[in-house]
Design a protein around this nucleic acid. Structure first.
Ligand SMILES: [Zn+2]
Ligand SMILES: [Zn+2]
Ligand SMILES: [Zn+2]
Ligand SMILES: [Zn+2]
Lengths: 160, 160
DNA sequence: TAGCAATTGTTATTCTATAACATAATTGCA
DNA sequence: TGCAATTATGTTATAGAATAACAATTGCTA
């Protein structure tokens, strides 16, 4: 299965390795703490709040307070390895960390599942429309609330 | 000047009258408190946080606590008279309250000015792309961070 | 007028995020 | 290696946003 295949999803380890590579290329340090926070986010089925991440860190036996996790999140956000979903105050792993983008998210109202869509057509149109208003775009955040395919069919496993 | 003219902006009173009419048609009550909160939001140049609104209410001599303003905001949100900008935790008056929509916003990073864009093309494309993922859209929130025309030219008045 | 529902007042608490400063680890260089 | 500068983490306290729970009030209606 190749990245261009529909339904392709890189494994957990592949994603971490990719993050390592990206950080190395950029000359920034993916420290133990930062890597662990990224792991925690990737290993959960749904985006997590900062305090939920903190709970997991403490479960590891690691000491920590809110700034511990917020600083790690800030780093991961700066590097484009995660996104923040402002409407939910949660953080989600980015599925295309190579190229910077604000992120377009499909959020299921019923089961809370989140899907990163990132349609270039939407991004381009949004930039064009903003340009028509003489507005210079830095980042765009798109959050669509609705119902995922599973919940429409009533076949959601609802993990959380 | 007519609503279809470019640059048309309804007056303060016109907007309140429109809100009154909408609420009457819908059989909901735009009470003193709710109307006052809407006034406060419309009468400020930039979107406001809930606690800033609360300060103004208290300046009126009115008694109040956070739930006072949050309940009014909830009502105004339900009626589509205002929007919440999740990335900033602020509330902005809707400039097209007749038809329901999530809202597309151009937010200036430098002066904080916010412009409600609401491009139907963006909305439609977003729905189409979501549908391609078998996702049923309920509401969509678009927040674009960038620089407004004034700030690009360095002619921003920056009202605060 | 009594009764019911909707609205507002009030107090306390939860959840999210940051400020400020102390300590530890890492890096670059003499 | 030894040391200063930088970066990262630990720690305590606080700020900021939102809601829970219950009491009092208002407005409508039978
Ligand atoms: Zn992404
Ligand atoms: Zn779902
Ligand atoms: Zn609007
Ligand atoms: Zn500006």
């Amino acid at each position: 299965m190749y990245p261009s295949d529909p339904g392709y999803a890189p494994s957990f380890d592949t994603r971490l390795a990719q993050a390592e590579t990206l950080c190395q290329e950029r000359g920034v340090r993916l420290t133990d703490l930062r890597r662990r926070v990224l792991e925690i986010i990737w290993s959960h089925p749904k985006p997590m709040g900062a305090y939920a991440i903190l709970d997991v860190l403490r479960g590891d036996g690691r000491q920590g307070a809110p700034p511990t996790v917020y600083r790690a999140l800030d780093f991961l956000l700066e590097q484009g390895l995660i996104h923040r979903l402002a409407s939910l105050n949660v953080y989600a792993g980015c599925c295309q960390p190579g190229s910077r983008h604000g992120g377009q998210f499909l959020i299921c109202r019923d089961c809370g599942q989140v899907n990163e869509m990132n349609s270039p057509a939407v991004e381009n149109l949004l930039c064009a429309e903003a340009a028509a208003h003489c507005f210079e775009v830095l980042t765009q955040m798109v959050e669509v609330l609705g119902r995922c395919p599973d919940c429409q069919r009533g076949t959601s496993s609802d993990v959380g």
